[in-house]
Nucleic acid binder design. Structure first.
Length: 657
DNA sequence: GAGCACTGC
């Protein structure tokens, strides 16, 4: 096909860049100014480009200037790796032991002590600390980094900080750090906080757009990769795709296409490496291996390469402009996963990946007009997810009326109403809407969605805490059964040895129970032979251990129900009753709570079976409404286990045929 | 009888 690539044209420079903004400084030159600004203002909004050093340098400046006043500086990050990596680097720069003056705290890993004065942590960890100490009294300064990502915990911290600042009357400084231009919004929310811009260390990236919209972005991506390979000097190519399927397709097509190229007209061979979250760790490691001489690496990535993973050596980015995003329908209580256009902020983030080490080029497989038509940023998480856990935490934080909490962007009223209804139905709230004792108070301590917390606590009450621990831990991790189209039959065969006619939860329990009996050194191989995701199982076991500790501290007896799994299934129902469904004559199911018609997902062990009544974890809308992770229950249990909820639905259960 | 992006406590 020679050089017949996409027609790309250069951008005309209409994009507003940080460089054009006033007061922009390299952080080292701004040191004194920053310190005095923090002294003078209660809240500061810091906009820093990539590589501005704001996350590593600023906390050190403030600490050395004595602004912690004997207390500590908390720096939050949305991701564990960032929190731990930055803490290590800062400890090294300051020449102190990690865990002494500088430390970090993330789930399963606490490297902090009473001596820690600069504490890096995930935003969720700071929320956990606030649940115990709502005034965050051990901190003098809180830094909310990557605020533009608008994660659910950071969202809570925004409102909480506003409240604490009133209570502590200037006793707590807040610094909001953002990589994008949302500064005005943050500043406005925090009553006109001072905004500072910091210069970064990023090389220029040339933006290239297609001149006409493309029919198929996958085709266009393939052609563009080949075009770059033929026309451009050395440097690796990063392609953003929406999922495993697309990655596997291009993984097959790129080598086929490159066979048709003469080595003379291109720069050696292309080495195609995939990267996505579900990929096994050993294969993930391939993206970090240096590109062999005379070759060009083509990285096929999901969104994981947008923020979580930085691949070295990338000079060219190919961006089709789409992402697979989850959205939550509060009214129906269902999720859907759809391929949608990215936002301008995401487009900038993606193209920025070409300029980490040298000037680069970004090939956008959409027109410049299309770019200008994208929404500025994707909707914050709070607009897109179930708010049950958030509402529960706000109650613990002393917010009597969660609707009146100072949200930066208020969540949809229906979503908040649904969350409160669910908490009431679970028994986590009393009739006045306060946290119930002891259930509500126990649920808020557990690092689980409230529905799964309820499963666990009911399991404990029904003398099957050991089994409930396993079920809930397995439900909290990524799928354990590896799925790849080519290994389909083997995978199904392997699953049989764990399969239970009682459903997926019991099947998952069987997997974890077997896994726990395997010696540590054998576990990797054991998983490999059975096509099980080793990482998921390792994580499930970690979660299980942590939850077990929680049960012990709640003084809950740890018991096993042995072979009689009825109490366990009742426990599962006691948390998931909103997701109970009854068989209809046409072999579909009707969700009792919402009236939705659903089918059992073909990946479920119950697919093809027709139990009269089921409960499930998740309702996903794709080609149909599918439910996943399903357990068989008895219709008669419904009014026993959730009497208030099923009082008026009794007749419907009876009709269940 | 399909096909799930990514985080986190």
């Amino acid at each position: 096909m020679g050089k017949a690539g996409e027609q790309h044209t250069a951008a005309h420079g209409t994009e507003r860049h940080l460089q054009e903004l006033q007061e922009q400084l390299p952080i080292a030159n701004a040191r004194k100014q920053l310190i005095s600004l923090v002294k003078a203002h209660q809240t500061l909004v810091l906009v820093g480009e990539t590589g501005s050093g704001k996350s590593t340098q600023l906390p050190q400046y403030l600490y050395k200037a004595g602004l912690a006043e004997g207390k500590s500086i908390a720096v939050t990050q949305p991701r564990r790796v960032a929190a731990t990596a930055i803490a290590r680097r800062v400890a090294q720069e300051m020449g102190v032991q990690l865990g002494a003056e500088v430390g970090y705290a993330v789930r399963f890993d606490d490297r902090s002590s009473t001596a820690t004065r600069i504490k890096y942590m995930t935003d969720g960890m700071l929320v956990r600390e606030a649940l115990i100490d709502p005034r965050l009294s051990r901190y003098k300064v809180v830094v909310l980094d990557e605020a533009h990502e608008r994660t659910l915990p950071t969202e809570i911290l925004f409102g909480l900080m506003k409240q604490i600042q009133e209570q502590r009357k200037g006793g707590l400084k807040l610094i909001v750090m953002s990589a994008t231009l949302d500064a005005a919004k943050f500043a406005h929310f925090f009553d006109g906080a001072k905004v500072i811009y910091l210069q970064g260390r990023q090389y220029p990236v040339e933006m290239l757009y297609v001149s006409e919209p493309v029919d198929s972005y996958l085709d266009a991506a393939l052609r563009t990769v080949v075009q770059i390979h033929v026309d451009e000097p050395s440097g690796d190519i990063l392609v953003f795709l929406t999922g495993q399927d697309e990655i596997e397709t291009l993984q097959r097509l790129i080598p086929e296409r490159s066979l048709q190229l003469d080595d003379a007209e291109s720069h050696g061979k292309m080495l195609v490496v995939p990267i996505y979250a579900a990929l096994q760790p050993e294969q993930q490691a391939n993206v970090f291996k240096p590109t062999p001489p005379g070759m060009r690496k083509v990285i096929l990535a999901t969104n994981i390469a947008e923020t979580s993973i930085t691949v070295p050596g990338v000079r060219y980015v190919v961006d089709p402009g789409f992402v697979k995003a989850r959205s939550y329908n509060a009214r129906l209580g269902s999720d859907s996963l759809q391929v949608v256009p990215i936002s301008k902020a995401q487009a900038r983030q993606r193209s920025g990946r070409a300029g980490r080490e040298a000037p680069g080029k970004a090939f956008r497989l959409y027109t410049e007009a299309a770019y200008l038509g994208l929404q500025a940023a994707s909707a914050p998480e709070i607009q897109r997810v179930s708010l049950a856990s958030l509402a529960l935490q706000l109650k613990q934080l002393g917010v009597a009326d969660v609707r009146a909490f100072p949200f930066m962007d208020p969540p949809p009223p229906t979503a908040l109403a649904r969350a409160l209804e669910l908490l009431l139905a679970l028994g986590a709230l009393d009739q006045r809407g306060a946290l119930s004792q002891p259930l509500g108070a126990q649920l808020v301590r557990l690092p689980l969605e409230p529905v799964f917390g309820k499963v666990l606590l009911s399991g404990a009450a029904m003398s099957c805490s050991e089994e409930a621990l396993s079920v809930v831990s397995m439900a909290s991790t990524d799928p354990v059964f590896l799925s790849s189209r080519n290994k389909q039959e083997v995978s199904t065969e392997m699953r049989k040895q764990f399969m239970s006619p009682l459903g997926d939860h019991i099947t998952l329990l069987n997997v974890l129970t077997s896994y726990m009996k395997v010696t540590k050194s054998e576990r990797g191989r054991w998983c490999e032979e059975r096509l099980l995701n080793a990482r998921s199982l390792r994580k499930a076991l970690e979660i299980r251990g942590q939850l077990r500790e929680h049960l012990l501290s709640l003084k809950v007896a740890l018991k096993s129900c042995g072979d009689d799994l009825e109490p366990l299934r009742r426990a599962i129902l006691s948390g998931l009753f909103m997701h109970a469904a009854i068989l209809l004559p046409d072999n579909t199911y009707k969700v009792i709570a919402s009236g939705q018609i659903v089918s059992i997902h073909p990946s479920s062990v119950l697919s093809g079976h027709k139990p009269r009544c089921i409960v499930f974890d998740e309702l996903l809308r794709t080609t149909r409404n599918y439910v996943r992770n399903v357990t068989v229950v008895e219709p008669a249990w419904l009014p026993e286990i959730a009497p208030i909820f099923f009082q008026n639905k009794g007749s419907m259960v009876g009709r269940g045929h």
